[in-house]
Design a protein around this nucleic acid. Structure first.
Lengths: 200, 200
DNA sequence: CAACATATGTACCGATTGGTATAGATATTA
DNA sequence: TAATATCTATACCAATCGGTACATATGTTG
């Protein structure tokens, strides 16, 4: 049996994608319901939005989930055991850089930029999906570094945690560079240099 | 002749410092007049705040100027020609890291975190003091790298721009790490590794 | 067909936003 | 002292915030 009732006149998935772009661009608090309503299918009404998503927070949560399931997947190669540790890290950095400056969506990484733009008001910002994603990426980098030490690939690395933190910091900073207008060529060249922390 | 009229009952400099802490912690838009009023000298009235600063934006501008004149000065060693290029960069990174996690003010760097938290609404965010400070730090790092290549200190560096960008990205990322709870020990150890992009 | 379920449009809600009008309080200057 | 300049307190403003009541439109199911 198909779903009953009057069908909604806008595509729900497209609406979440549009909302994601706005939240990604401006952050949670800075994005108003008015902007969200206006951006969806050429403008929808408040009751339509609330019937579909429950609240601004609900739409935000779905937007974050969509981001993590799509653009955020560029970091998943960190967990790919078929890649060498160096390949995994380099691929993650280059795929993230490319994603961060490609056309069709805001620049930078929503997970990194979420440091200031996440934080739904009056809430503990200590355990949001955005923060969890940063923690996961952090753990992935550290795991790769440790794996590289174990395999002997990173013979020059003396402090796994410190090296992983350096790479993590570099990764997080790329979002600010992207927002400041850095080109993919500049980011890619920087990645090449940053990888030297793993040894020649 | 001293200034006439009824003297204000709160210290103006202290008020700007308090406002700076709020803007630094939450960003421009997310910080409300109510919070600002309440935080100054145990609570002041709206007319008092407007008589002293003109507008929320005026208070923000003074807060940013105060930050750049105080905490932001940790980066000025990048322009100190009496330091070797390596010393200048390492000092800037370590001083910034220490500042970012020290007690008494929000964690992270207001200049770096300003990517999302700056941007007064309906304004071009392309030429704010915060963005200008990022550009200045960027130029300072690049100048140090170029100087190190010229002096022969960085004989292993093949691409000044790319190496400087890598260090810039690392620096910017530290603010997110600081917000995520990184300790000074972790940041300092990461700096030691990041500096390897300049060669052993 | 009737009954039901869902979405939409209009109109509205209380709370909060940044900001101000006005009057009174408190200082310096003449 | 009187005049003037500045700050403070109370009260208020229009605009916007996120969110909702209610009637109506439009679909499926029996």
């Amino acid at each position: 049996m198909a779903k009953m009732g009057r069908p909604r006149e806008f595509d729900r998935d497209t609406a979440v994608e549009q909302a994601m772009h706005l939240f990604w661009e401006r952050g949670y608090e800075a994005t108003s319901l008015t902007e969200l309503k206006a951006s969806i299918a050429g403008g929808i009404s408040a009751p339509s939005l609330y019937a579909a998503f429950g609240s601004k927070r609900g739409l935000y949560d779905e937007s974050v989930a969509l981001y993590l399931a799509t653009h955020g997947q560029v970091m998943e190669c960190l967990w790919d055991q078929t890649l060498s540790p160096r390949e995994a890290i380099e691929t993650a950095l280059r795929r993230s850089a490319r994603m961060q400056v490609e056309r069709g969506h805001p620049r930078g990484c929503m997970v990194a930029l979420g440091v200031m733009a996440d934080c739904p008001p009056g809430n503990d910002n200590t355990r949001t999906p955005i923060r969890a994603a940063r923690a996961r990426n952090r753990a992935g980098i550290l795991a790769c570094v440790k794996r590289g030490i174990a395999t002997g690939d990173f013979s020059a690395v003396v402090d796994a945690r410190a090296t992983a933190t350096a790479l993590d910091s570099f990764l997080l900073g790329m979002s600010t560079l992207a927002r400041d207008g850095a080109t993919l060529a500049v980011l890619d060249a920087a990645i090449t240099q940053a990888l030297r922390v793993l040894g020649a």
